[in-house]
Design a protein around this nucleic acid. Sequence first.
DNA 1: ACCGTGACCTAGG
DNA 2: TCCTAGGCCACGG
Length: 113
Amino acid sequence: MAKRTQHFYDDVYAVAQQIPYGRVTSYGAIARYLGLARSARMVGYAMTNSHSKEVPAHRVVNRKGLLTGKHHFEGTNLMQQLLENEGITVIANQIQDFGTVFWDPSEALGVRD
DNA sequence: ACCGTGACCTAGG
DNA sequence: TCCTAGGCCACGG
């Protein structure tokens, strides 16, 4: 496959939309799946523009399971409430049982090597 | 066209 | 195990 920059955002959104209900993933996991493991920042940057799309951005957190992007949501605890609404426990911006609710696209959709 | 910024990650001490 | 430093690439000013 060639040119991914143009499809980069769409790919990120596509993967994010495939995140199951009550599950979360990380920017790095999505980046790795897209073959951009070293450009995880771009994934987060792409999410900034996801407000125009139907993308569950609240289901995407960092590698530690910390809600680093909560400040980009309306209010102050919207992201946390959205997650808790799906049965995910969040304490101090930290997702509990992160390893359990974590959803790896590379593992679910298949790793491309 | 150059520079600074950013919802991150990995490696080394 | 915690902290620091470097790398990544796109976008706005």
